[in-house]
Design a protein around this nucleic acid. Structure first.
Lengths: 205, 205
DNA sequence: TAAATTAGCGTACAGTTGTAAGCTGAAAAT
DNA sequence: ATTTTCAGCTTACAACTGTACGCTAATTTA
């Protein structure tokens, strides 16, 4: 085996070890370098051959998590194209993501309100990316103004993330009920934005 | 001075010390018993005369923070009674709270998505309390059904908390803009809920 | 006044942490 | 074939953690 290949493999082992440590009870800031190293099967000091800090590893994890989210969005768009309501399909996709990658989503949630400025900023960037794409989609499909579409998208993303956080602690049946609730709530936002946009445009004439 | 009084005073010192340590960079789980003791001006072991754990202290903090929130809600209701829109007044009150008690709000935010089940549950209870009162208020002022009012209130609370989290990192001007945005978004929800409720009732006839 | 209670302290210990220093052996470069 | 590079190791250390144990001095109780 190549030297570079071997190094990449170890790097993967470190990243996977970190993910596996991020269960319900642990956050990035409470995971120690030695613990990660132990779990990855390397000596503590070997960690430095791959990352400068635990923080550098953390940023890598956030980036990977963000990438997973973006892939999720693409998947959702594909499903919409092949029929099914926008809201319903998006929520279902999101919920599936949370189920399948709960540790990844938990990471984003925790670091979103976490103690590291760098991590917070990184997560915020990912969420804004998320919002941006939803804004564009909204403009294209509803003809709303950019500012209105952006307001609507932002509200929706915040609501969905907030609901996702709640879903993490629930069983499957409760998750299904929660999904129904959030779909209805998203319809409130979408309908409200539409009505208010109409009001604004007619009152100006 | 009484012995009990003295003990209460020290207990306060411990609690205040913990709050003062909870700045942008620290969370409850990263604050050590020794650190709190040091900051409160007592010996590490004296901590145990007041709390069994660091966790017991944490729960006390969450409870106090929740109480502060409930007081905030009462204050907001008073202001609404003396004129001013419900939404606008509530958001302004909330934003003032975040400004004046940022460490308290940060505590709630962090522990809401944090690593301790007990803390998460405690924060969740406070938020549900918050939602419940808004639901009742909505029923009383709009005549919406309980289920619709509850959906609306839940969405609003999640949106406001989410926005509050974002506001923590911003300067005053940005906060003001954010407040405007969230007010508009809340109107989306309120209007949408109303319209959909009407649609539902007419379609049934 | 004598006895009991107790808030707070000092000492101590075992366990953890991050990371500095230098070694080894195998892969890569010359 | 020889040298260089470098991923991973072992050892080591100082700093920090939670908390057990027992003492002290002051307040409270009897």
């Amino acid at each position: 085996m190549n030297r570079q290949e071997q190094k990449q493999k170890t790097r993967r082992a470190i990243i996977d070890a970190a993910y596996s440590l991020l269960d319900e009870q642990r956050s990035l800031s409470s995971v120690s370098l030695r613990e990660v190293a132990r779990c990855a099967g390397i000596a503590p000091t070997s960690f430095y051959r791959h990352f400068k800090d635990i923080d550098e590893l953390g940023l890598t994890l956030v980036d990977e998590a963000g990438l997973a989210l973006r892939q999720l969005m693409r998947q959702a768009r594909l499903r919409i194209a092949s029929g099914g309501g926008v809201i319903s399909t998006s929520v279902d996709t999101f919920m599936e993501f949370i189920n399948a990658n709960s540790n990844v989503f938990r990471l984003l949630l925790r670091e979103h309100t976490g103690t590291s400025n760098a991590f917070r900023a990184a997560v915020l960037r990912e969420i804004q990316h998320f919002t941006q794409e939803l804004t564009d989609y909204t403009i294209a499909t509803t003809g709303l103004s950019r500012s209105m579409a952006n307001l609507q998208a932002e509200a929706m993303v915040k609501l969905v993330f907030s609901t996702g956080a709640e879903a993490l602690d629930l069983n499957n049946e409760q998750k299904a009920q929660l999904a129904l609730r959030v779909k209805q709530q998203l319809r409130f936002i979408s309908t409200g934005a539409l009505v208010i946009a109409e009001q604004d445009s007619t009152s100006k004439r």
